[in-house]
Design a protein around this nucleic acid. Structure first.
Lengths: 335, 335
DNA sequence: AACCGGATTGGCAGCGCTGCCAAAAGCCGC
DNA sequence: GCGGCTTTTGGCAGCGCTGCCAATCCGGTT
């Protein structure tokens, strides 16, 4: 099956043409199923391809083709450690696969300068699109995105103006809805427990929305603990312990996300604090485990997969520039 | 900063050369910092690049260059829903970034045919390397990988022969170590609770190692529940409930991974079963939350990030063909 | 048998870049 | 001021493919 070729030189379309006894253009047309070709030509090409083990070279194809690549999409996410971004990628790759588009990924580590460098690096592959996370970028990143001749989609956050297309939900609205829920349930001494906000700007927007809604109810945060580093159950657990030591009269905690909340739940279990009787917990994201907990976590489910899918759709077909996919407040048993 | 260019045509190296008043080769040499160039030339080129907002076209660069691309790596993972694979990617992208190599990803959904199709698709970008998960592939995938003129690295699993380089650990050994641990702790009526083994072959290997080690101790599985679909805390919780209904005398459960085990732990909490007194739980992966649980989960920590890093290293420099990174049994409080 | 329109085909330029090579420029010491 | 040397430079072919266009083929018509 695998024809041997002089090492270092791979089989080219010209080889296939020679082997099949037809012209290069014919091979090209047959392989791309573009233009007309006879049954006989199709068969001979198919045979030659199989015999030689030909794999087309898309570098060349894209270079020769019309605009540019159009078969790659550059994706920049801030992290892969938070489930949210793999989920986003999952939606993206799933939907783009069908269109034969591959994702080239970059991880910015929440650093705008790295994001800019990655944007330049990804654009150098002449992708069909550049997919960014969030709406806040370096001016240089924006300039690159605009001049790059590619479609640009900013994912997840809709609180602000985008470069081109925007797909996501309002983080501010999530925060506000969460606050209203807690207030409606009668909680009054509510603290916030989060990871680094300077770095995760969307968590900051949720908190802003949360505090605004608290304010509307005549309340304010009763405590606030910002943990350095990324979110994790371990950080959530330690954070809640700190918070309770400082504000023993807390009756509810709003976490920056479910991972932190899970850690908080563990802290309560370990300390024998009843949830939500003694203390209520509210998360964000609606991860898998939230529903499996002995007391399902009260949280907000975000349409992560769907954001990826819609982002993909807005690359392929033309669609609305701005898609707000909303969110769903889950009234669990912890708040 | 961003020079306007006739839409549809991006700035090319020739444009830069004209703008800078030097030859194309000079621009090329300056930009790649390759060969010699005068200070004056370097300055003029830098200015022109900035003025025009030039972004090099790597499609063309790679095509013209020596062998092929060498700036892209094709990565195929079975899933993005399981934390393991994002972690792997994290290690990979982190280490490859420094070398200026980007990852193009493909998600096979545990389907060997999809994997093969993805391998062909990724190879068409003439990557420097192809990174696969596990050692089991279609013959066609293997043929492609061998004929593709690329380095091939198979990640995670070392139980078997690889195409070229292999980086991971022995899943069989993990299973065996887990069984020995449970046996040493005095558990005798041990069940297995996992997700679909046909699909996740590595979980199958762990189970095989587990059963073999049980056999050496004169024991056999006291129950076994295979849940359809992917692993998740929800599935683990439901599965443990089923298992306990069927085998009320169980004293320990080996889970296919920590997600399943977390669900099992939740089931115990919900049912008021003491852990590990009434029932012991043992996981796999050593995820973040395992250590934050009120009773740290007994599990095996796998070097996921490190596998990614080493895989990257074995693309860049030449290294040993086979790297077993081992694993670490964590004696938590649940088994 | 010459003719016609559509289907099929092959040749060739050129996508943007790099490698090669020969030409030009700069530098040194005598 | 002139060889002889190194450094710097630009021209040009060609990477593998696609788009364009003209040439060829085929089947039925007149």
């Amino acid at each position: 099956m695998d024809g041997f070729q002089p090492p270092g030189r791979l089989v080219t379309l010209t080889d296939v043409a020679r082997e099949a006894g037809v012209g290069e253009s014919t091979v090209s047309r047959v392989l791309r199923n573009h233009g007309s070709s006879s049954k006989r030509a199709r068969e001979r090409v198919a045979e030659a391809v199989a015999r030689l083990g030909y794999v087309p070279n898309r570098l060349a194809g894209s270079l020769a083709g019309p605009g540019a690549s159009a078969q790659l999409a550059g994706v920049i996410v801030p992290s892969l450690a938070n489930v949210v971004f793999p989920d986003l990628l999952r939606g993206l790759t799933g939907a783009l696969d069908a269109a034969g588009i591959r994702c080239v990924i970059g991880v910015s580590d929440y650093d705008p300068d790295r994001e800019e460098a990655l944007a330049a690096a990804l654009l150098s592959w002449r992708p069909a699109a550049l997919l960014l996370t969030g709406l806040e970028h370096n001016p240089g990143t924006v300039a690159l995105a605009k001049a790059g001749g590619v479609r640009v989609v900013e994912m997840i956050d809709t609180d602000g103006a985008g470069i081109d297309a925007v797909v996501g939900f309002s983080n501010r609205a999530v925060g506000a809805a969460s606050a209203r829920h807690l207030v409606a349930r009668g909680y009054r001494r509510i603290a916030y427990l989060g990871h680094d906000l300077q770095v995760d700007l969307r968590a900051g927007k949720r908190l802003a929305g949360f505090e605004a809604a608290l304010g509307e109810a005549g309340l304010s945060l009763h405590g606030r603990e910002i943990r350095p580093g990324p979110s994790s159950p371990g950080s959530g657990r330690a954070g809640l312990e700190t918070l309770l030591a400082r504000h023993p009269d807390l009756d509810a905690v709003y976490f920056s996300n479910d991972d932190m909340a899970l850690g908080g739940y563990f802290a309560c279990l370990a300390a024998g604090l009843s949830v939500p009787g003694r203390i209520a917990l509210f998360g964000f994201n609606g991860l898998d485990f939230a529903a499996a907990m002995p007391q399902p976590l009260s949280t907000v489910r975000t349409p992560r997969l769907e954001i990826g899918r819609q982002a993909a759709a807005s690359l392929i077909g033309e669609g609305p520039k701005r898609i707000d996919l909303g969110f769903e407040l889950i009234e669990g048993a912890t708040a």
